[in-house]
Design a protein around this nucleic acid. Structure first.
Lengths: 216, 216
DNA sequence: CTATCATTGTGAAATCATTCACAAGCGCAA
DNA sequence: TTGCGCTTGTGAATGATTTCACAATGATAG
């Protein structure tokens, strides 16, 4: 109970749902801070994030003990701690592959910048798009991918290409040493161990809704 | 073991992860069918969707028994059955609120149409956008929302407005009787029981990646 | 300084999800 | 028709996550 440091201890096995909830808590903490609230109890955090107080405390307890008994959690301090847990206490170098509609929605999403994500390169395979300006970037030919991913020391690649091109893109990205990918293509991608992939799949979400509507 | 009909039986409690996997299986079945494969075993389905054969069989067993022992599953038949389970054996009437970049990416996503989702109305609050053409639709003023959602008998609403407007939009949408919402705004929305919400939240996904990169 | 109050941190219990393991069923060959 | 090989469907076992429940502790008031 002396541990106050964050970060995964050896052998830690944090579940994906815990990490998702930490993101939620962080968002609430930002709101609370903007709102001038000094402290929040696990009960308040739970209420606002749609979970239970015990869940909030358990999630946080994997990483340390950040509250004060009888008082709750200091908003600015817990915010700082959760940012550190999630790795948001540094900048991240991001590249986008696929300069279509989805990529376009992404690059103009300015919360991204505010959160420490810097989009440093944009690639496309369409020769007519190469060289065109895109936000603050210029679209690069996809043949340059391996070189630029390395030269720019890219941490995270966002894949926003058609489904049938996604696996090939992914293989090249992973081959260039990138170990985290956000995939918008509606396919399940195969990756070697040690590479993190998160999928954003509208079709799956819509089907979740039609299932819910169909079954009561 | 005589039950072959799909659909939730009384008291069924299907987990969200099972439903997500069903979407994956369906996608694979489409590919397999396009590819001329007549049958697939649970082992093959598992291999292609990144899960285990036992998981595939368990998922399907909640709804009936669709395979032939010794042979596997007939691709066209299982496809039809999974479509029925997910409620994809009918069309769905969809409206979009928020005619920004994300909405724009959605409306031009033509797989949507192919899957039985018909976007029948688009709303925005920006007076300069009202009346402009958008895909096959014309942008409607958001004051018309309640009336049009009812008149068009909308089943599912896609919310693609800024975070600080999302809860108000949701309340109006739910008040109009809509019971399924796909939310792109980066907030956790509060809904009454009986309303299904799925969130597509890029920030949460990106933070999942930074967590993974930070903690080995 | 002590009592009171609120709220955390955390083992233990309960619930939920996945994996195991195998009997039962089907197709095929002889 | 019988036997063999393959694959399903499913209880039982295991593993993971959530919830419970309470002792420990900081803040505060008298």
């Amino acid at each position: 109970m002396k541990k106050t440091r964050t970060g995964a201890e050896a052998g830690s096995k944090i579940s994906e749902s815990t990490v998702r909830r930490l993101s939620q808590y962080l968002r609430l903490l930002h709101e609370a801070q903007a709102n001038g609230e000094a402290t929040l109890s696990s009960e308040e955090l739970a209420e606002r994030s749609g979970t239970t107080a015990a869940q909030v405390r358990k999630d946080l307890s994997f990483f340390g003990s950040f509250g004060k008994r009888g008082l709750g959690y200091s908003v600015p301090e817990l915010r700082r701690q959760v940012e550190e847990i999630l790795g948001l206490d540094r900048g991240w170098r991001v590249a986008l592959v696929g300069a279509g509609k989805i990529g376009s929605a992404l690059i103009s999403y300015r919360n991204f910048r505010r959160m420490g994500f810097d989009i440093l390169a944009v690639f496309d395979s369409d020769p007519t798009k190469i060289g065109q300006p895109w936000g603050t970037q210029t679209i690069l030919p996809d043949a340059e991918m391996e070189r630029v991913l390395g030269a720019e020391r890219i941490d995270i690649v966002i894949v926003a290409v058609p489904a049938d091109a996604a696996q090939a893109v992914l293989d090249r990205v992973v081959g260039s040493g990138v170990r985290a990918v956000l995939n918008f293509a509606p396919v399940r991608l195969r990756v070697p161990d040690g590479v993190a992939v998160r999928n954003v799949d509208m079709v799956v979400e819509m089907e979740g809704l039609t299932f819910a509507l169909t079954n009561r």
